[in-house]
């Protein structure tokens, strides 16, 4: 068995360009600064390209839409392998504060919008934002604790109904 023949892969021929994405649904499950920005910026980029967007906030992602928390999101210095800070140092008092301040400075330098402004932009763009009902109960949040840009509170099953026909992204 020395001469193994490898069949050439059959690639179906297509003359048409790939179908453009029409709708995305992004599940925002994390409330750290480095998870909130990618989710919201991606949502905004999609809307700017004419793609419909649903955002579903759940678990720690609720912080992004909670009035008392959205201006105070942090960067995690522990359990964040990209930070290159040894775990035993990352846990020292003030480390997270420092890392967060540094990232916020960079964000400002790039003239990126704050989380609050991004939520305004997304609302103006027609992005539909929903909060997870279970997470609301779990964190004892009321509707009035959430920013007004949130359109409603949904169960996960309701969310999937809303997500019909869309690509689903989990962050």
């Amino acid at each position: 068995m020395s001469n193994t023949e490898i069949a050439e892969a059959v690639v179906p021929e297509t003359n048409t360009a790939p179908e453009p994405i029409k709708k995305v649904s992004i599940i925002c499950s994390k409330g750290s600064l480095d998870m909130a920005y990618p989710a919201l910026i991606l949502a905004n980029a999609a809307r700017m390209s004419g793609i419909d967007v649903n955002l579903f906030f759940t678990f720690w992602g609720m912080d992004i839409i909670t009035k008392s928390k959205l201006n105070d999101l942090h960067v995690a210095t522990v359990g964040n392998p990209s930070m290159k800070i040894p775990t035993f140092l990352g846990g020292l008092p003030g480390m997270e504060f420092m890392a967060t301040r540094m990232m916020k400075k960079e964000i400002e330098k790039l003239d990126l919008p704050s989380i609050g402004e991004l939520l305004d932009i997304l609302e103006a763009s027609g992005t539909e934002m929903y909060a997870c009902q279970m997470a609301m109960e779990m964190f004892k949040l009321k509707r009035e604790d959430l920013v007004p840009q949130v359109k409603g509170v949904l169960s996960a099953m309701d969310f999937f109904d809303k997500a019909a026909g869309s690509q689903v992204i989990f962050i």
Binding site: A45, R47, M48, S49, A124, S125
Partner: peptide
């Protein structure tokens, strides 16, 4: 978004 409903960023 009203003026360019199909995506104001690009259009």
């Amino acid at each position: 978004y009203k003026l360019f409903p199909k995506g104001p960023g690009k259009l």
